[in-house]
Amino acid sequence: MTGHLAGRFGQALVACFGVLTIVFFVMRLSGDPTLLLVPEGASAEQIAALRHELGFDRPMLVQYVAYLGDLARFDLGESLVQRAPVAGIVAERIPYTVALALGALLVALGIGIPSGIAMAVWRGTVVERALAAIVLAGQSLPTFWSGILMILFFGVYLGWLPTSGADSLASLVMPAVALGALTMSTFARMTRISVLDELSRDYVAAARARGLSRMAAVGRHVLRNAAIPVVTIAALEVGNLLAGAVIVETVFAWPGIGQLAIQSIAARDFLVVQAVVLFVSIVYIAMNLLADLAYAAIDPRIRLER
């Protein structure tokens, strides 16, 4: 079990390193930020001088090695655009994105999983059809579209919720729903399939044969078994949530790392973009390790493996 976890951790580190490398080179293929930093009408010599000062005239491989050297010392560098340490810039934004992602996850798990269970247990009834309609809406409305619709309806027309910004818990509601909708649908569909799959197994018939009601069999045996595939997608879905945050944070002017990423890409603020990517990768790795631990907690076959 521990060996397995260590192996997974090693794999994840390699993947993280790969992603960082790709981002490093792709960002630089489109040029460097020198032109955006010099005052208007600067001469070619001035530009060249600044480029030299910033180190962008060095061969790319040299820049890459220097960057890795800094990383190894946990130094994320300084933003060329904001003239401030990257670590601080990113750290300031992280709580917002974490709050948004947790809110979205709450929506996704809180609605998606019970809906999925209900759709499976009451298969073929009006309950299933009603929930299926909600799930379909969640998965087919694009995030930017549902976001704008919600702003218009709850923010502008009803005036119940703030239209943008991050001033109170109320401002979190719409972004979290917009971001969580797609994930909610994914959870609902996966949970439904997983529960249906388990319901058809012999151990359910056997549990009923020893006197459990259908609901008792679901509660005592089916849900735990059905959780295993759902845990797998939960880890993946957190990655999708962070990707979706880029759009939601832009639509709702939410000051998280998604918004920061868009601003930094536009400004060619390489080090900030790289730091954001690094953060997202680490979250992703952590979620996958968490999923592995969750499997072990659920499934004795994994727990008892040497």
Binding site: D202, Y203, A206, A209, G211, P300
Partner: peptide, 24 residues
């Protein structure tokens, strides 16, 4: 019927391993 199943009327199945909840 639920009160009767398992108490006065029981059943066993063809695939014993599949008839037991693997996690319990």
């Amino acid at each position: 019927m639920q009160a009767i199943r398992g108490r006065r009327l029981s059943m066993i199945f063809q695939e014993p391993q599949a008839a037991l909840d693997p996690l319990d």
